[in-house]
Design a protein around this nucleic acid. Structure first.
Lengths: 228, 228, 228, 228
DNA sequence: AATGAATGAGAGTTCATTCAT
DNA sequence: CATGAATGAACTCTCATTCAT
């Protein structure tokens, strides 16, 4: 009876044979569980998801989940942490900090959209399930969102400072960053429904929308209702 | 919970006297219930909200809720429909279709932010609770979102056409609208945490961010990574 | 499957007809539930007892139990409170405060043993299940025990004072009371296994054991190892 | 729990070095386990105690516990047996069978209270956790209790016989013994909360309460309600 | 000899939903 | 019209117990 220690990875639960492979080391089991949890949470959302389904998909009994990852809330938080970490890593890795700010933004957005395109489940877990909940996960995801906004903010502030942005406009950069992040998220969702559009294109659209506007703003080229 | 052994200690939307007013016409009861539901859903979110609390807050027994508004899901959908209708109404009412497109966008955004500022519960129900849910409410809210995006799209397309937007850019207007709506939502959330900022200001920020960029875009003044 | 399609088989506290009597007023249901709980707790002890069995015996669904009496702990506390109240009431009602102290003790012990003899389940719940638990019920029952000890103590102190008990002996009355209560409890348990013995007899034994000794003590007629 | 995701943060009875000492002879392991079990059971009670905690405190893996001591119930019974044996040994060893009966009782009670004072955990396991449980441990502990009662009974009977106790009183000795044991236990518990009282004193109190009364009883100097 | 890994089974609890009045 | 009373179904979480190594 040759027991195959084949592929552990893959969200696709575990094959029947793999199920027979017992006594896996803790790390592997944790990964299995997290993979399954991301999948289940992304499909049903936090509340509709049941630990039973997670354990089924993971091919692991519930007590193992509780032993390794803790409560449902803990498990969800672990998912968020992992996926958010991957997303931010991808963005940071995609940006060359030595280039001009607009190129940095471009690269960051591109990395972001590429991640979303390549990890739809991750994105769903991060975006769809978290923003709304008033629960304790907000912490996890809002922290990520804050980091993202901060990143953008730093970029904008850097640009603004360099170009001599006036104080009032400077104070607005945080709001702008929030708006930009929201626009990116919304566009990412739109994009999930229009997969034919190439990544480059959608990112270029967003860049043009926000970057040119921001450039005008910095140049003092503002729009005002008073003038109309 | 009416038969809960614990102290009620919660919020009571109706006074003792109101409770004595029985045999109210259906309309009034429905409004009572919907008001309570919006309040409860906005506070706890769909899943954490309980029908018991809704009935308590409404001062109406649960069977009445089921008789008038149907299941929990139906009730939530009714909330969404009503609040979304109010929001769109407010926006439409705030826009003068005879003025220039940029002014129209300005007026629309202003109406939107004013609504959010004045109806925080409504906004919470609409935004925070709905985007995430993969459930059947998406229909309701996505429909609203689509209408909003369509409105913006029409505006942008109008502008583009007038100014002679090239085809490629034209195809992007839908995406742009999605991004704009997302930016608005995100900014509205940010604003809820920074109530000191006047409505005018936050709207102006957003206008500057997106309108100027859009203007540049239409003028063919595009940003492109190739040039950098 | 968690779904319990089991037949109710086993102990049935209510007849089939009674089961059909639905929509009973809250009071009645609460009594039903408490009766069943006392029975189940007295049979299996707190921890081994399950809410399922309580609900079965009560002929009431579990949600009703939770709605009316709260958690398992609350339910147990309610049992203790009710039974302890009955016991103390019985004792107090059985004692004529105008007679001599020894008669009072006699009457109190008699009332106590009569209650135990007539309410074995109550006694089991009170005694067997509570003393040991370090949980939150101790409060309930230890309070009762304290009241009992205090009653006895007052009696002894009264006697002692009247007869001129020396100080050292006086300080010991609390300990004596504790011992007396313990002796009574233990004897009650013994008695449960020897039901042939009449109440009068067992009480007389106890009276003789402790009262005569106490009398000697008060008279200064003490035993001391030094003398032997 | 060795594989618990939460911080261990608990009590560790064995040092790191001890943990490294593997391949211990069976006796030593059994003692380690029993010591830990007594400690854990005395702290949390039978039901609240978990095998996980026992294994943690013992520094021994759970399968070892099952291999050496059997099920949780078996383990508890083993604890009771050991501790009860020690208690009875202490009592027997403390009594000089050649002295007068009252001195024997005095010595036995003294030994008992000394044991309780010096082995509070043992006492808690024996008394607090066992009396209440309706489970299978009753056997173990009730056996011990029976032996204790028998001891006392023999003493009393001896006295009675010697002094010519009448038949009715003789039949009562068993009940008296039960009462005495209960009084002792209750007083021991009281004493645990009043550690300032010297052992001698508390024992003297009890002796005076019961011995003098018993003496009177034997002498036919009885109390009777009829006379009052 | 010794244990990390694993689970079946069942506990308490809650909630949307519906009769019977 | 209006509701107190009632429950089926499911969920999260825990624990004693045992393999496989």
């Amino acid at each position: 009876m040759a027991i195959c220690h084949k592929r552990h990875g893959g969200v696709d639960a575990v094959s029947v044979e793999d199920r027979r492979v017992k006594r896996l080391p803790r790390e592997v089991r944790e990964k299995q569980i997290l993979d399954a949890a991301v999948r289940v949470f992304s499909e049903h959302g936090y509340h509709e998801a049941s630990m039973d389904e997670v354990s089924e998909v993971a091919g692991v009994s519930k007590p193992m989940i509780y032993a390794y990852l803790g409560s449902k809330e803990d498990l969800f938080a672990a998912c968020i942490r992992r996926e958010a970490g991957l997303l931010l890593e991808a963005i940071v890795a995609g940006v060359d900090a030595t280039v001009a700010p607009d190129m940095q933004l471009w690269m960051g957005l591109k990395a972001f959209f590429e991640f979303v395109g390549g990890n739809k489940q991750s994105w769903r877990v991060l975006h769809r399930q978290v923003i709304s909940q008033g629960g304790p996960f907000s912490d996890e995801v809002l922290a990520m969102r804050s980091r993202a906004i901060t990143l953008v903010d730093a970029l904008l502030v850097g640009v603004a400072t360099k170009r001599g942005m006036d104080e009032h406009a400077q104070k607005s950069t945080e709001a702008m960053s929030a708006a930009l992040v929201g626009a990116s998220e919304s566009l990412a969702d739109w994009w999930l429904d229009h997969p034919a559009v190439p990544t480059r294109t959608v990112v270029a659209w967003l860049m043009n929308l926000v970057w040119m506007g921001f450039g005008d703003l910095v140049e003092g080229n503002v729009w005002s209702p008073a003038e109309h």
